[in-house]
Amino acid sequence: MPGSTLVAVNYTLGSEDLTYQDIENRFGVEAAAKVLKGSGIRNRRVAAPGVCGSDLAFQSAGELLDKQPEMRERIDLLIHCTQSPDYLLPTTACLLQERLKLRKECAAFDINLGCSQYVYALSVAHSMLASGVARCALVTTGDTMTRTIHPRDRGILPILGDAGSASLLVPAGPEADAPGFLGFELGTDGSGAKHLMIPASGFRQPRSAETAIEITDAEGNTRSAENFYMNGAAVFHFAITVVPATIHKLLAKLGLTLDDLDLVLFHQANQYMLDYLHKKLRIPPEKSFCYLENVGNTSGSTVPVVLTEAVRQGRVKAGGRVLMIAFGVGLSWGATVFRASPELVA
């Protein structure tokens, strides 16, 4: 059975700057320096007022399809990944199908996951292409998570940014060494759901006067139950345990070692974490690539963003093996290895 291959990627950042100076002005010199030391994030890009995650996805997909107009008619699967949809209903992917002028014989649905969303969506698109259900897939991501952060939360506000992305997948060739996805490893630990959460954001805990009450913690972070919450220590612990184990498990399943990889791309959570993961896994600089210092952690879009940048900067070679791993909200994680196609790096 043929698999699938990635033939194009693109991304769009929020158009507004939230600079180091802005953080210094808001939280003070010491706090800004501490954020930079702890996260490696100096500046971030956030969506302009009124811009939704789907707009960032739409722009990414539009630019990509303008370069390959023949693909627009071929797309028969659209998977949009978001945790900040335009509406609770209808599904954002359906709105994107119309905006992108895709054919009506196109399956369209959302995947509601956080930072792991891109790898999950790739795995679903891959499966549908491999089984023949679809012939050409567009995977988009788009979130404006910065809108969910309390403006006086000095722990999270300086970390996150907004972005969207678009990726095109087609069936892989029949050759054993054809470019394409070699395998996936997915996982979930719902016991850690509370560590990355907006408590009053759905039907379980409806918004009320009570959920709007603001609380300031011992480190001076202010938020209410309606804001994004992250237990940084718990997420860090999760990452440094699950990420190495997942990579080793996927490589073992594929009969590969780290030496067989040409590039390893992590979810761009924070530089401190990435530096430690590179060190722990003994990934040399020539096989690593990061892109978050002036972008921020763009939640589910970090992997397509860092992949696109790696392609643009010549770090992905045709035929090269690339491992991508994403992890976060859920807690949820996913990893994949693919052999890069000539079209992707053209």
Binding site: K34, E219, N231, G232, A233, F236, H237, I240, Y272, M273
Partner: peptide, 26 residues
């Protein structure tokens, strides 16, 4: 002793002792 130090301590123990301590410890 703050959230940034938690990360540093977690790394220090993971590197030095080969164990990722639970965040509840902090």
């Amino acid at each position: 002793w703050d959230s940034v130090a938690y990360l540093g301590t977690t790394v220090m123990i993971d590197e030095g002792m080969g164990v990722a301590i639970s965040p509840e410890v902090f």
